[in-house]
Nucleic acid binder design. Structure first.
Lengths: 346, 346
DNA sequence: TTGTACGCGTTATCAA
DNA sequence: TTGATAACGCGTACAA
């Protein structure tokens, strides 16, 4: 304890660099670099000596320096819209799978539906010179996304469709999804149907409603729109109250919800108020998150290929980043209806 | 289109540096730097000229270069155990709140319960020289965490308790939580109770079970352990099957689940098999995730202060990173039982 | 108030 | 096979 570096203060000491390793191993700096990047170009003996020095010193590469030198990082980022919606965490898993395969790090940010937070993250990511950005934007038509692309940072829009040709996008056909939901209900004989969703500023909500209306056209069945101010469980409960308040004779016999969170809230409220599901009210959700199948009355839902969505988006991004003759694509996946007890014929 | 930079190829062009800005503004490099970091030291006129040049060129600071110069980044990371469990995304929100307040970026990684992925992330984060790491580890007693600390990267363990004094930790008193759950069931008159959970390699599971046993001691009530191989909805369903298979006379009248995912799966299975909740089986969950209250039979659950957990952990990390006389702490929060319909007396 | 010069840690080029 | 050196972009001390 009398001399040398005191272990207790070692924390604050600058971490060892290649230079330190070189000194310790008695070789030059370039050789250490070669051990790290072209191990074949260095003799067995020196290599093991260098490796021992690295281990002794606890050497860890400095990624900042690498990036500075290389001009680019090996990191991509996903700016997600709402971390508390399982749909998006599943998308993130798909992205992570692709990133891991390409040996890229994934940086996940949560904008939490706030434009200001989103903007802050985008700026930071640009400063970090990330290889590319995946994003489910608060506003897909905001010019900041195009600016990023023009600036040289590849951008892929996830689960939304941008308004320009500046970037790729990966989404699911929501018009078709709406159609599938309604056709299922029509098949079961329902004639008074509610659409639960909003706000209509969200593209998905509009598309799913359009699909629903399209499927209903000319069938004689009616559609009541029950408006919500967000796609959340709480709003689903509130919608349930309003539906329950209608006289039985004119009350819808089925409800199509713009997402599963709404559907779960609606289901909960119905059960609480003694409205049988599916007897008095059949319910169709959207997304088919895991909790949909796990509800006490398992939920019929329109499934989106969440993981594929993420994986494909990441692959497009990596292609754009590495492939010189990349061409932007707008990929559109097809949803599938999964029927469960909440719409079972009784 | 005949001369100059073709916009279509501008993507691949190196982004402008402070040097480019200086040239364009007709000032020296140091002045540009001053505009960025000490705006007060530069005259109004030059400053606006420099700012205009930055805007014209679309200058964006290079964070790698800054970090290299500074030696440290302004980023912290949270390595989370399971992105598909809402409990952890809520914790992450708390962390994000604290990070935003301290003007730090948060890097979220998902180990997905896999030690290999966790190790990979830890290595990358260390290479990035992040300011600190928050982690809910796969194995809280793994030596790699201590190595990180010793290496100079502050580490805070979230929702687990480490086995050393090398870092702070923030957790919730799980023994107390288990006790609360059981006392609630005893108050309701239950005498045959099941504990649904596992594997016991998870500290939380052990603690909650210990708490449960402690509360039962000397009461005459019995505890049956229904083992699960993971804390997931699917495992909850499987547990439900096994409980339903017991003869009615010896079947437990109440179940305490090690987390809400299990409880939701159990609830679903019971309803599907015609076992009334809470009439034939009362259910208590753990975590009080949002979906617990939203279940068709709203779930009684032991609530943990998820956001506070995250916020406190981040604050401890930032303190360790910035405060020279930081002292490690093991913070323990107190859980609260939230009673709902799944244990209502009928 | 503004400009010059150096160093952060790494990689790559070139010469030995 | 190995070693010396320049360069990446930025921040800062110091000089003008």
């Amino acid at each position: 304890m009398a001399t040398g570096t005191d272990p207790s203060t070692a924390r604050s000491v600058r971490s060892p660099s290649v230079k330190d390793v070189a000194t310790r191993a008695g070789v030059s700096l370039g050789t250490v670099s070669n051990v790290l990047n072209r191990p074949d170009r260095v003799s067995e003996a020196t290599r093991s000596r260098v490796e021992k020095a690295m281990a002794d010193l606890g050497f860890v590469r400095n990624e900042s320096a690498r990036q500075l030198r290389a001009g680019r990082s090996s990191t991509i980022a996903y700016v997600m819209l709402d971390a508390s919606n399982p749909f998006f965490t599943d998308v993130a898993q798909g992205i992570e799978d692709a990133a891991e395969q390409a040996d890229m790090s994934l940086f996940i940010c949560n904008s939490d539906n706030r434009a200001s937070r989103e903007a802050r993250y985008l700026q930071r990511l640009q400063q970090q010179r990330v290889t590319g950005i995946l994003i489910t934007p608060v506003d897909p038509s905001h010019p900041s996304l195009d600016e990023l692309s023009r600036h040289g940072t590849p951008v892929v829009i996830v689960d939304r469709v941008g308004n320009t040709e500046d970037h790729c996008s990966v989404a699911v056909d929501d018009v078709l999804g709406g159609r599938l939901a309604i056709e299922h209900l029509l098949d079961l004989g329902h004639e008074r149907i509610a659409f639960v969703g909003g706000p209509e500023s969200i593209g998905q909500v509009r598309d799913r409603l359009d699909g629903a209306r399209g499927a209903l056209a000319g069938t004689g069945a009616s559609l009541t729109v029950v408006h919500t101010s967000a796609l959340s469980v709480a709003e689903g409960r509130s919608a349930g109250e309003r539906i329950a308040g209608l006289p039985r004779s004119s009350r819808p016999t089925a409800a199509f919800c713009a997402n599963d969170l709404l559907a779960l809230g609606l289901l909960q409220q119905c059960v609480g108020l003694g409205i049988g599901v599916p007897d008095q009210l059949a319910i169709v959700g959207y997304d088919d998150i895991d909790f949909a199948a796990a509800a006490a009355v398992p939920l019929t839902s329109v499934r989106q290929p969440r993981r594929d969505l993420g994986r494909t988006a990441a692959e497009l991004l990596l292609d754009e980043a590495t492939n010189a003759d990349h061409e932007h694509q707008q990929v559109l996946f097809t949803p599938v209806l999964v029927a469960r007890a909440s719409t079972r014929r009784t």
